[in-house]
Design a protein around this nucleic acid. Structure first.
Lengths: 234, 234
DNA sequence: CGCGAGCTTGACGTTGTTCAACTAGAGTGG
DNA sequence: CCACTCTAGTTGAACAACGTCAAGCTCGCG
């Protein structure tokens, strides 16, 4: 990847991590097929990487940044299905749907992503079943994240839902107990499935109880055990 | 399948429909591998076909009956993730998880199911990538059902949720506008993520408004359009 | 005939949404 | 340098939605 092509946001998809993920499964020839039909792009916060309703022509390998998976319903209300951070394969769940993307993936911060052509990918799957199994696992993981979130939405009140979200963000996305939130309060509420005001009130409560420290977008989880306890009781 | 082995609930897994699904993808040899390690069983209402937390050793091909996919949480509250009816492959989402089943699958009525050994299935996947793609599609379908339900839980009130459930049951499970419900009111409430009383009240309301006809377990959808309208406004 | 499981209805308190007002910071143009 | 405006965040009060509780119902079965 040259400096110039990189600056233009155009290059083949030869990200180091992507190689790392795939190399143990792919032959040079197979890797070549995927690289030929792939393209490396940069996205800014708010840009859609994969758009709901559009024909699913590609999935993406996220090499830098954080994204949200959003379902936009008829009434214009949004629901965040999941958050993913690099390095990760995203959009795989669209791959075998009816040809249209089931949800939109938005960049939450500056992102580098490699768009991989689905037909090339299928071609490689047919050549290499080990790789098929691997892809299966990745898609499966997202499914289980979704179930987890599901439970939270179905049975828990705001306290439990917000607790779940911060446990998820800390463990799976930012991988630290101290992080700078890439989501707005409104986005938090679209993740929790409650009103923005309700999320804010709950955050204030957690702050006053010394469970988390909140300074705008700077979050620190002070009492992880208590957060888990809140998550459990709902 | 002899009459005797059928009565005992024991036989190889040579269900006609199962053959139908697989034959276009599997060779005789591959089919043989799967059949050798599979077993045909009968289940009564309430019996678990696949148990949450147990090691995922098999998935199932449901040739007769209706099942529920249930997540049982720490506090003993249940959440129905999805309903499936025959003919269908069930439990596929557990296949590539961390080795333990993420949810339980219960028979809602008398069911015939063929338990298929996962290691045999993986063996065949490695031999035949066409088959891998097919399995991928099946698992993908369940994922999209789950997302659909997700939205319903996140943003809609009881009216919308109950409407969604009856649309789903009518279209995807019973495939008729008139059917005999295999779920109790309590199970409906575990599907909708609201209290049983709330489901009942809503059903009564729909009945008085002439949207559905309810006589115990006998349901008939009288005004599908109105049901869809209710689903949309939430 | 009586019992129990599933179903139904209404009253009441809790939880959540909506609305409206207010604050703080960032960007813009005179 | 200071209004002006726009966006994100915050707080409280009024109202609607939901869960819980308690009571009564129906139907099948011993």
């Amino acid at each position: 990847m040259t400096e110039i092509s990189n600056a233009l946001g155009l290059s083949n998809c030869d990200d180091f991590l992507f190689n790392l993920v795939c190399n143990e499964f792919l032959s040079a020839e197979e890797m070549e097929i995927i690289q030929q039909s792939s393209i490396q792009l940069k996205f800014q916060r708010g840009e859609a990487i994969i758009k709901q309703g559009a024909r699913s022509t590609h999935i993406a390998y996220l090499s830098k940044g954080v994204v949200k998976h959003v379902y936009e319903d008829e009434t214009g209300r949004n629901l965040i299905l999941a958050i993913s951070s690099a390095p990760n394969l995203i959009g795989g769940a669209n791959m075998f749907y009816n040809g249209k993307n089931a949800f939109t993936i938005f960049a939450l911060e500056a992102c580098h992503a490699c768009l991989i052509d689905i037909s090339a990918l299928k071609q490689v799957i047919l050549m290499n079943s080990q790789f098929a199994l691997k892809l299966f696992e990745v898609a499966s993981d997202m499914f289980h994240d979704a179930i987890f979130n599901f439970i939270s939405l179905a049975h828990k009140h705001v306290n439990g839902r917000v607790a779940d979200i911060f446990i998820y963000l800390s463990r799976s996305i930012y991988k630290s107990e101290k992080f700078t939130l890439s989501l707005t309060r409104k986005e938090l509420s679209e993740f929790a499935g409650v009103s923005q005001e309700n999320v804010i009130t709950t955050l204030s409560k957690f702050k006053h109880e010394g469970i988390i420290s909140v300074e705008g977008k700077s979050i620190e989880i002070l009492d992880f055990d208590k957060l888990i306890k809140i998550s459990k009781i709902g």
